[in-house]
Amino acid sequence: MSIRINLLATAAILAATPALADEVNVYTTRQAFLIEPVMEAFTKETGIAVNLAYVDKGLVERLKSEGSRSPADLVMTVDIANLNQIVEADVLQPVDSAVMKEAVPANLRSPDGLWYALTSRARVVYAHKERVADGEVTTYEDLASDKWKGRICTRPGVHDYNLALLAAVIAHHGEAAAKDWAAGVKANLARKPEGNDRGQVKAVWAGECDISLTNTYYMGAMLADPEQKAWAESVRIIFPTFENGGTHLNVSGIAMTKSAPNKDAALKLMEFLVSPEAQAIYAEKNTEYPVLAGAKRSELVESWGEFTPDSVDLTELAKLRPTALRIMEEVGYDN
């Protein structure tokens, strides 16, 4: 195998791997099976081996402690909050690549080249097919309306996905209005926030609530799981928008470390990952949206229909995360 994968999250194994001209080392919070196909395609095309280390927790701390001795060339993770934490840790170097800039829209990459999005996902409403009428869900703002009393399920408000959504509410309407919105959604919850995104869809299927806030790609994951397929089939995806805005997006992204011992190979991998071939493979495997305009989406993703992405800059949302966290705590969202 040309791809060495460590599923036990011990990046130290990579530290013991000598740097070669024909390899690239990647620390990732994305499970290996999600990204292995695209890495295999890269190795087949270039002959450059990819060493993947799955680092579930403590990624920033590990990079900081390793410093200039880190064997990691690239970091791959999800959510703008995680990308911003790595930026603030000062362990990255800017990548000034015409290929990356042309492929990745400006609002889906760092203005100074410290990170680039690879795929995007929308945070949307999963609505029960029978208990929620067509056109009943329209905007994110409407989720605070009394008509949803006892009908909404979400995972904890302090989770990164919900904090990013609340940060977008702040960006659109200001802090005071965002606090009212968070309190309104809390008042409409059918149960205490708990579990993950799939658990919310299960709750809709079970009749505990009528709608949930869930990322788009979980639909594909549930349909592929025999135990969860019925949950997915009980709901349909609806793309709410912000008033005078679009549907909230978040991303998976990639960045190059300061230490990068295989910088040239790492850049080749970054540029490959935004190619039409790689974007199609990545999007098909993860049922996420390609960032490259015109790249092929999976058949399932296409079936969800079109939507208008929100134009708020993700870097701005990352900066608003502390405010979003404070608001969630002030309104006692998870209590």
Rank of each mutant, 00 (worst) to 15 (best):
E136C: 08
A127T: 10
G174V: 07
V125H: 11
K179M: 09
L92V: 05
D180C: 03
W148T: 01
E136V: 08
G150Y: 01
L59Y: 06
L52P: 07
I48Q: 06
A164Q: 04
T119W: 12
T139P: 04
A133C: 01
R123F: 09
R109N: 04
N107L: 02
V124F: 07
R109G: 05
G58A: 07
N188Y: 03
A98K: 14
P111K: 12
L189V: 08
K101M: 01
A183Q: 14
H159N: 14
R155S: 12
T138H: 09
T77I: 15
E66K: 11
A106K: 15
P71W: 04
L63E: 08
W115A: 04
G157I: 10
A168C: 08
T154P: 03
G174S: 14
Y126C: 07
A168K: 04
V185H: 04
N51S: 02
Q93F: 00
D96L: 00
G135I: 00
A183N: 06
G113A: 07
A106H: 13
E130Y: 08
E141M: 06
V60C: 07
L92F: 13
H172E: 09
H173V: 02
Q93D: 00
A127Y: 00
E136M: 13
V104W: 08
D90Q: 15
H128W: 00
V55S: 08
A190T: 00
I48T: 13
S120H: 07
S97N: 02
R151T: 07
M100S: 03
D142I: 05
G157E: 10
L143E: 03
A103I: 08
A144C: 06
D79F: 15
